[in-house]
Design a protein around this nucleic acid. Structure first.
Lengths: 129, 129
DNA sequence: GTAACTGCAAAGAGTTTGCAGGGGT
DNA sequence: ACCCCTGCAAACTCTTTGCAGTTAC
């Protein structure tokens, strides 16, 4: 069977069970709990492989490490990042995505990727503080 | 007069004259042409100051340095980043931003910042290659 | 046997920081 | 006198890479 390596499968399993948008370091930490010999470079390498395959999405965050999102058979969704704490939240496209897509492509000639909407904001807990 | 330091003013001038979304390194290079003694740390430090002041926006890019956008008295606009080459393009919100904003805030409780829309895509030149 | 994979340690890119000194009011 | 600023060099964070060995078929 053409399967993934033990380590890669563990990384995928870890990601599938996560409810938020972990950094590489968090994924490394959790994978290490299952297999204490796994190395950081294996985690980084595999995250890149999975991004290439389109299995996960990589979300760049200013002043902090990238975050990753496992794409289950969930609905397409966007991400909103708190500018202050860097936490990432999901949202669904209840608004008119087609209109937006068409407008942007007309203006820039760049083809929008559906998994690629990232919005900066301020989350509730940071707003209070 | 309560003015900026010579160096900070030069950095602002450089940014104002740019038509794209430069990295810190590009800004450093261009500022250095005006004032060869300016240091990289001054550029980084001032970019952070200007982001804090809300004069410029910082755009995180995976697998590459942040990019910066000088906010002139231009219309509010979003950014679309080519996932392949990292280049950033502007677009205006011709679509219904209010609908989007409301939908996202309802779902996540996070308040959207108007200068913070970033979308990943594939630009024309990368699509060909 | 070979292609894709691993851990390790070192290197790389991008950015920040401690320090001693300089400028403006 | 004070505060904010600077250049320099070193430090730091995040990520990638070269290498030698391992695993899966």
């Amino acid at each position: 069977m053409k399967n993934y390596s033990k380590q890669r499968q563990e990384i995928i399993d870890v990601m599938r069970e996560m409810y938020h948008h972990p950094t590489a370091e968090e994924i490394y930490f959790l994978t290490k709990q299952r297999d204490s010999s796994v190395s950081r470079s294996t985690v980084y390498r595999n995250l890149n492989v999975l991004v290439q395959k389109g299995m996960i999405t990589q979300i760049a965050v200013s002043n902090g490490p990238d975050r990753y999102d496992y794409i289950q058979n969930r609905q397409k969704h966007g991400h909103i990042i708190c500018k202050n704490c860097g936490k990432v939240y999901d949202f669904l496209y209840n608004f008119n995505l087609e209109e937006m897509k068409e407008s942007i492509t007309n203006q820039t000639g760049v083809e929008l990727l559906e998994d690629g909407i990232v919005i900066k904001g301020i989350c509730n807990s940071c707003k209070k503080a």
